[in-house]
Amino acid sequence: MAQHAPPARGARLGRAAGANGPVTTVSGAVLLLPGASRWSPGPLRPLARALARSGAAHGLVAHPVVHGSAAREEDAEWAADEVVRRYGDVPVCLVGYDAGGRAALRAGGHAAVNSVLALAPCLGGPAPEEPPEPVKQLSGRQVLIVHGTNDARSDPESSFRLATRAKKANRSTCRFEVHSDGHGLREHQREVVALAVDFVLGAVFSGRYSRPVTDALAAPPPLGLRMPLASGFGRSLRG
């Protein structure tokens, strides 16, 4: 695989979480791509802690991608290359919030990536002369998009439109709506984190998901792309 040069802005992998201390055998990796503001990480920090707890027994590590501003596609691709260099041929899940969600989706075609999770992705509305966000790179990947219905920063309908096009290129695409929640997904953070952990562990390791995720992946549009995230989700799921 061709190696990407480190991004000019000095992106690097942050300290790994997981594997109960020093990493010995790594069987899968998560790359956490933040949004435009380091002061507003959304659910990424609690998600990293939850992944460290739930994925340690599987050999999962989670690295934040550290950089000066919002993550770009190039940062995500470089970070995936760095995972391969450090850990070998292990499956990689890209998890992005805000602008990081857009970067994760765009970089989903990287050879090491088997899954993408975009949380409140900032996709914007392209001008008439601009092409829509690409989706063909997501073919063959497990894809989950999560968006709050009251998001005032990133239009939830933009991620629904992208999911609709992505579903045509890749049946393994689903999208959950977090009713009454905003851009930071704070009101239902526990449920969002539980959903994310369920998806990541299933996509990277077992291929099995909770019933709501399984149903969302199997349902035809628009049902599987407007799946409501139930209050209390995750209380009966794996630790």
Rank of each mutant, 00 (worst) to 15 (best):
S159F: 09
R15N: 12
F160D: 04
M1N: 11
L225H: 11
D81V: 03
R49V: 09
G182A: 11
T164Q: 14
V95E: 02
L13N: 06
S206G: 02
E129G: 12
S231A: 14
H4P: 11
G10R: 01
V146K: 11
P221D: 04
H147F: 10
N114E: 04
V178E: 00
M1F: 14
G239T: 13
L138T: 04
A203N: 05
R12Y: 06
L185G: 05
E82Y: 09
R38S: 09
Q137F: 02
V61C: 06
E133L: 15
G14A: 08
A80Q: 03
G35Y: 05
V95N: 05
D215N: 14
V143D: 00
P132G: 09
Q142E: 13
M227R: 15
D81M: 09
L138E: 01
S27A: 10
V204Y: 00
G18A: 03
L201N: 00
L144I: 07
E133C: 10
P131C: 10
G234R: 03
P156I: 07
A169T: 10
S210V: 02
A169S: 12
P34R: 07
Q142S: 14
G182Y: 11
S37T: 08
G55R: 03
P220K: 12
T24N: 14
G68V: 08
P46A: 11
G125A: 15
S180I: 05
A36M: 09
A71M: 07
H58K: 05
H58A: 07
H58Q: 08
E82H: 10
H179P: 07
L47V: 07
L217M: 13
P64W: 02
A71G: 06
A216I: 06
A194D: 12
R171D: 08
V92F: 05
A57H: 08
R235V: 14
Q3M: 15
G148K: 08
A62L: 03
L94A: 01
G101D: 03
V65N: 02
G96E: 01
T25D: 14
L33V: 04
V135S: 05
I145G: 09
A62K: 07
P156L: 10
N170E: 04
L162I: 01
A194T: 06
H67M: 15
G55T: 05
R161Q: 09
A76V: 04
G101C: 11
G124P: 09
L123M: 04
A118G: 13
S210Y: 11
K168F: 09
Q3F: 13
P64M: 02
R12W: 07
A29D: 04
H63A: 01
E73L: 15
M227L: 15
A216H: 04
A166S: 10
T164L: 14
G109L: 00
P220L: 08
Q142K: 15
G100M: 07
S40P: 01
L201D: 03
R186Q: 11
L60I: 06
V197L: 08
D89Y: 14
W39S: 15
G14F: 06
R171F: 13
A127L: 15
A216K: 03
G108A: 01
G234L: 11
L201A: 06
R238W: 13
H110M: 06
A127N: 14
H179S: 08
L225N: 08
V135F: 09
L225R: 11
D215W: 10
R165A: 02
H67S: 14
R141W: 01
V23F: 06
V200D: 00
G35V: 01
V197D: 00
